[in-house]
């Protein structure tokens, strides 16, 4: 074993990594935003609907949760255009996939959050004469937000890491950038070590931001 670590080649192509991490964050943020809209909407519908609607939402959640993300990415990018006549670039395809994937996980997070709102608070809202919609808007959602923040942090970090899967359809995010440099330089240890550090730092920064939010909105019960 006489391997000499050398990062020179990595720094030379560092733009692939810096561009990559920004794209990773962008993919994650867009997918989380769309996924949050899907998740919140379906969670609210779920808790206020009958069995049939609930069954449909559960089916969506269970389907997504039991199929590997990698497979979904292939299905949407390669499969969908052959069935339906649409064309889209790899990034868009991945955002669609990750949004639908995030939505399923977030339905569960928001649903358990809505269920965890203390019944007494809803009684208080009812007793003062708030309509169901006003109770949702002014009591249930604000309380739920505070309850779900810790679980949301975990989901957000997972989704950020899941953007690495976009590399399989050549979306030039961080992992793809690392592969690209590796293919050029064969500096496998160095490039993946640097990439790991970048994931760690970015992930930690996201977590740190969310922890600040949690502290600000902590709910006392």
């Amino acid at each position: 074993m006489n391997y000499q670590l050398s990062f020179t080649q990595i720094w030379r192509h560092f733009d692939k990594l810096s561009y990559g991490v920004l794209l990773s964050i962008e993919l994650a943020v867009i997918a989380i935003l769309i996924g949050a809209v899907i998740g919140l909407t379906l969670a609210v519908i779920y808790v206020s609907s009958g069995r049939v609607v609930r069954a449909f939402i559960s089916a969506y959640v269970e389907f997504i949760r039991n199929v590997p993300l990698l497979l979904l990415v292939y299905l949407v990018f390669y499969g969908l255009p052959t069935v339906v006549n649409i064309a889209y670039d790899a990034s868009t395809s991945f955002i669609v996939t990750l949004s639908v994937y995030a939505g399923a996980y977030l339905v569960e997070v928001f649903r358990s959050g809505l269920d965890a709102v203390p019944k007494g608070l809803l009684d208080a809202g009812k007793a003062m004469g708030l309509t169901p919609w006003q109770r949702l808007l002014h009591v249930r959602l604000p309380t739920m937000t505070r309850i779900t923040l810790p679980a949301l942090s975990n989901t957000f970090i997972s989704l950020f890491k899941d953007t690495s899967i976009a590399s399989v359809i050549a979306v030039p995010e961080l992992t793809f950038g690392a592969q690209w440099i590796n293919n050029r330089t064969f500096r496998i240890v160095e490039v993946y070590a640097v990439t790991t550090v970048i994931y760690l730092v970015a992930g930690y920064l996201i977590l740190f931001g969310l922890r600040m939010l949690e502290r600000r909105f902590r709910v006392e019960r």
Binding site: L121, D123, A124, A127, T143, F217, R221
Partner: peptide, 12 residues
């Protein structure tokens, strides 16, 4: 109007 045993103030 109702006042509750466990207060039930809106925490936010």
């Amino acid at each position: 109007g109702m006042v509750f045993q466990s207060f039930n103030l809106f925490p936010h």
